[in-house]
């Protein structure tokens, strides 16, 4: 009896330990937070500064994927980010991707804003409507010299 007691406790402990290890490796440390299938999308940014592989991809504040990689396009020197998206999520073809920051000094992530097109983005498709990351230093610089409202870089006045 005494022995089966010890073995029972050890068994319970081992199960607990395996559960904790699984939690840490699968839930926290995994590359893809998404169970099941995924597909890849590409997004072209003028500036992908601060965006790293492993960063989150959010739609309406919900994590739907991860940044797979960031590379340079040798043709026009723009940054191409590869995004791995949960395959259950179909995005309209005119969706928009923007690089945003959590808080003032937080991580960069990609926020997707779904459009209204009937057609969906196919796996491997490229999102062209993008908004690059905000260069905080130049923004601060502009604020300091009081020229923010005159020379907005996003929508130059015609």
């Amino acid at each position: 009896m005494k022995h089966s007691g010890i073995e029972l406790f050890v068994g319970v402990f081992v199960l607990l330990g395996i559960a904790a290890i699984a939690y840490l490796t699968v839930k926290l440390g995994s590359g893809s937070p998404v169970g099941g299938g995924t597909y890849l999308l590409e997004a072209r940014f003028a500036n992908a500064g601060g965006l790293h592989p492993g960063g989150s991809v959010l739609v309406a504040g919900v994590t739907v994927g991860r940044v797979e990689g960031v590379r340079i396009d040798p043709a026009d020197f723009s940054a191409i980010a590869t995004l791995r998206i949960r395959s259950t999520l179909k995005l309209p073809a005119d969706s928009m991707a923007s690089i945003k920051t959590t808080g003032l000094i937080g991580d960069k992530f990609v926020a997707l804003s779904p459009g209204a097109d009937e057609a969906n983005l196919e796996p491997g498709a490229r999102i062209t409507m993008t908004e690059s990351s905000v260069d905080i230093e130049s923004l601060i610089g502009k604020m300091a010299f009081g020229s923010v409202d005159k020379e907005t870089e996003k929508k130059p006045e015609p």
Binding site: I21, L24, T25, L28, G29, S56, T63, D107
Partner: peptide, 17 residues
């Protein structure tokens, strides 16, 4: 919790073990 999940990467867990 989303901040937890976003921060921890596979390399961190590997270092831990």
């Amino acid at each position: 919790w989303s901040s937890v999940e976003r921060a921890v990467e596979a390399a961190d867990v590997r270092e831990c073990f």
